[in-house]
């Protein structure tokens, strides 16, 4: 029985030998650089002695995990992380899709291209720089308040109010990533047959119906795959962004798992870093598996595997 299965596998590889030849070089490179160093995960369960190497170091059990979860403020950091993650999925994830759809409705070629190019600019500036700009712009005497004053709004120091913090995190993340994120959707839109639109117009379908019945279905597989690919990093809610926007008054609501771990990460504390990474990854894996299952329930041809 087992023997048969083995032979069947050999046979199916043999019948796909050209595909296999195409596949193997890249796959071996992948194994070499992704899986050979994978034993480093063990360091999370070890007391790392440099002289003994990772594998030779003594086992430490779950010590590093206990230390990680027992620190002051862990639950607060976990809660903040989950809130920010959910907010980002609600508002940041759909933003590039909406941008792509809106741009798709623009007829003027030069206008569409210019907007595309301009909106993707902030992606190229690190949060250290964007943070500096935002502190000035959102400060009490900054440009944003000057604009609001035309509408009779009293000036606010936006970045020091804890109640505005999540809103600002979401809005600035959209601002920084929307253009860059929409590129993959532009690529997907390029696959739509223009005759579909022409036919719809001829049938007298309204703009909304065209978006709903042609554009969105064409984007759906890409949206699904982007969701599946990103959900594994659910607990990584943007360390650079939050770290560079946090102040003395917002650090309570802005404390996320990454900043929490950073505070504990001493010099060369590889064990704790690995333990924290393993925690987020395991959580992420769980989400990916569940999400993939859900997607396949809906349409068994979608999903990653």
């Amino acid at each position: 029985m087992k023997h048969n299965r083995f032979r069947a596998a050999i046979r199916s590889y043999a019948s796909n030998k050209y595909l296999l030849l195409m596949f193997l070089p890249g796959f071996l490179l992948f194994l070499l650089f992704q899986y050979v160093p994978m034993y480093g995960i063990l360091i999370a369960f070890k007391d790392f002695r440099i002289i003994d190497g990772i594998l030779g170091s003594p086992w430490a059990g779950l010590k590093h995990f206990e230390y990680l979860f027992a620190g002051a403020g862990f639950t607060n950091a976990l809660r903040n992380t989950l809130i920010i993650a959910l907010l980002k999925y609600a508002f940041v994830f759909p933003a590039p899709i909406i941008l792509a759809i809106l741009l798709n409705e623009i007829r003027l070629n030069w206008f569409r291209r210019t907007i595309q190019t301009v909106t993707y600019l902030p992606h190229f500036f690190s949060w250290v720089i964007l943070g500096g700009i935002l502190f000035t712009f959102l400060g009490r005497d900054g440009g944003f308040n000057r604009i609001l004053s035309y509408f009779g709004v009293q000036p606010v120091s936006w970045l020091i109010e804890p109640s505005y913090f999540y809103g600002i995190i979401v809005a600035t993340d959209v601002w920084q990533s929307v253009g860059w994120g929409s590129i993959i959707y532009f690529a997907a839109l390029a696959g739509i047959d223009p005759t579909l639109y022409e036919a719809a117009v001829a049938d007298g379908a309204s703009r909304w119906r065209r978006i709903w019945h042609i554009t969105l279905p064409a984007l759906a597989p890409t949206i699904t795959i982007m969701l599946l690919l990103s959900i594994g990093n659910f607990l990584s809610v943007g360390f650079d962004q939050i770290y560079n926007l946090m102040t003395a008054t917002t650090s309570e609501v802005g404390d996320i798992l990454d900043t929490y771990v950073l505070r504990r990460l001493l010099t060369m504390n590889y064990e704790l870093g690995a333990a924290a990474g393993l925690f987020s990854s395991t959580f992420g894996l769980l989400l990916v598996v569940v999400a993939n299952r859900l997607v396949k329930l809906y349409d068994k041809d979608q999903g990653i595997w």
């Binding site: 400060g139 009490r140 120091s157 020091i160 102040t247």
Partner: peptide, 11 residues
């Protein structure tokens, strides 16, 4: 009141 940001002190 914006002393809590530690930003833009020079300007």
């Amino acid at each position: 009141p914006e002393f809590v940001t530690g930003q833009d002190l020079g300007p």
